[in-house]
Design a protein around this nucleic acid. Structure first.
Lengths: 338, 338
DNA sequence: TTGTAGGCGTTATCAA
DNA sequence: TTGATAACGCCTACAA
């Protein structure tokens, strides 16, 4: 059948079609300088052998593998997944594929994967951090363009794409205010996360514009867990039983908030509206009632990362931090006051 | 500095070290037939240029890319992630990397990714389905070994690695029985899933061994959602208020069960014990109380897939279906009766 | 112990 | 319009 034991090569196709390798190559890459008949013959031969060109050999010549590395520290978490999907989407049906590696927060592993990726000659790199705070740069003299997504790089010479957490916090509170809420509390997560402070700042800014104070007397920092959401809500209610809305810094926390509000027989959203952050579907959509929340548009972030990278591969890369806006997801845990 | 505009090649290293390309190659691949001094020179040169060999060129010769494709239909869902992690673990610090593609349940996209993977000359393929039921085979005449994980292939000539759902159901009920529970109900998901029936069968088998009947009069099939967990629990309690345990077919469902039991002021686990399935951490660990559940050992499944694949790459692949056992995760939603 | 030369599967540049 | 031929970067007999 074919020329040897392995998979068919261009040589096999050429032989079967009765042309030279060069001609076969041209026909397959539909270059103009080849007779229609000849092309048909070649195509038929290729089809017959179910020939698929060896990308490695092509890459050796073109210096382009059509491959992009996605180096994440947070596969288990939920953030890299939508970013990955967005990136895959942007590359779409083109010739670019995504090579995924999870460093799991381990520096050694990250270095290892970086080398693996580089030696496989990826055309570019997207680095996705586990948390929204700045992370060390991979370095300035990498042979391919690198884009940092979600976690910005500490080096301002790198290009980073991040979520607008301040805007997200503002969005959440704005939504509550528009629904007539006035006594709005904010329970959020780990205070070592910059994002927690950013979201709080956005919330406070919007409150200030309205001449409102934060209910509960403080931003309740704690941890990104349901348990903290429950605990904080209990303390909050003790201190300020009159709240009419809670902005939770994450959907997990929001679930805890809902839980305690139910225990306290407070009607949601009639008496107390609740809004979360992340739009983590499994938590938000299945809550009782389904949870309004802020979506960070991570797919869009992934798409943008892919586009920027694509442009950078034969051009030059920008630098600095670019911010992606959040969007509001309205479900049943928020509603107008009356 | 280096010989040209691009990244350093073996030629550059050789030139800098003052040896031939062949010698440089031997030195770098620590072959014995090279003088220690010479090797040192080469190594130093390579270091100095931060040379990293072009895997593509190597692969062209060795016919091995050190790359495995992981074709999933379920990235958003949680099943592929642990499988991927397990696979990455098994390949470990070796030379093998994992190339991930998500077909998102779309056949066209799957075909596209398959071609992309094949033309990049992956050494093997792991196919992870979105649900535990059988899926169409990719075909018998693929040029590389293929292993189906989680979803078995419909073709018995393929090798598939799957979860032992019957065993998992048995495990859950056994745990409840050992804790003195006698009136055990089972609420589970979509009846079009084979896994739902398998888990139910395991549960019923174990019950039968003990001479017990299922509480609630039936297996409650519905959907894999919290909402169904809530609805089913309400119906169940109406029909049979005396249950002392619920085995939920998924952690999502279990969350719904817990919710309604709380509403009904039933103490968990004192009056009613609850056990879930999946060990989806975000749901199970944060439940109130933390949820006992059955873990499908998906990392182990991924590891095994990687091992089998590795063995198959220079050997031959088995066929049929291989089953991985589940393991019990005990948290606070189950406890001895008194 | 080191170097020369051929080839892996393509593409691209010339001649024919 | 087609076909030799030289790369691409590396490995590996084989020769020196």
């Amino acid at each position: 059948m074919d020329g040897g034991p392995g998979r068919p090569t261009l040589r096999d196709v050429a032989r079967l079609a009765g042309v030279s390798i060069a001609t076969a190559s041209k026909a397959l890459n539909n270059q103009p300088q080849v007779r229609a008949e000849t092309r048909a013959k070649v195509l038929r031969a290729a089809e017959q052998l179910s020939f698929s060109p060896n990308t490695l050999a092509q890459a050796l010549i073109t210096q382009r593998t059509g491959t992009v590395g996605l180096l994440t520290s947070d596969l288990e978490g939920r953030f890299s997944i939508p970013i990955l999907m967005g990136a895959e989407d942007a590359f779409g049906t083109g010739r670019t594929s995504v090579f995924l590696c999870d460093a799991r927060g381990d520096n050694v592993r990250e270095r290892h994967h970086l080398n693996a990726l580089l030696s496989r000659r990826v055309d570019g790199l997207i680095v996705v951090g586990a948390r929204p705070d700045a992370r060390p740069s991979l370095g300035r003299d990498l042979p391919v363009p690198v884009i940092y997504a979600y976690s910005p790089s500490e080096d301002p010479a790198d290009l980073s794409l991040v979520t607008d957490n301040v805007g997200g916090g503002r969005l959440a509170v704005d939504h509550l205010i528009r629904h007539g809420r006035r006594r709005i509390a904010h329970i959020t997560g780990d205070p070592t996360y910059g994002a927690a402070h950013d979201r709080a700042r956005g919330a406070l800014d919007r409150l200030a514009e309205e001449g409102l104070e934060l209910a509960g007397g403080q931003v309740w920092f704690g941890s990104w867990s349901e348990a903290w959401g429950r605990g904080a809500t209990r303390m909050l209610l003790e201190r300020d039983p009159d709240i009419d809305a809670v902005f939770a810094g994450s959907d997990e926390i929001a679930r805890g908030v809902l839980d305690v509000l139910h225990q306290e027989k407070l009607a949601i959203p009639r008496q107390v509206a609740v809004i979360g952050f992340d739009n983590w579907n499994i938590l938000a959509a299945n809550a009782r009632p389904p949870l309004s929340t802020v979506d960070m548009n991570l797919e869009a972030l992934g798409r943008l990362a892919a586009q920027r990278l694509f442009a950078a591969i034969d051009g030059t890369l920008g630098s600095g931090i670019e911010t992606i806006g959040c969007r509001l997801i309205t479900r049943e845990s928020t509603a107008p006051l009356d």
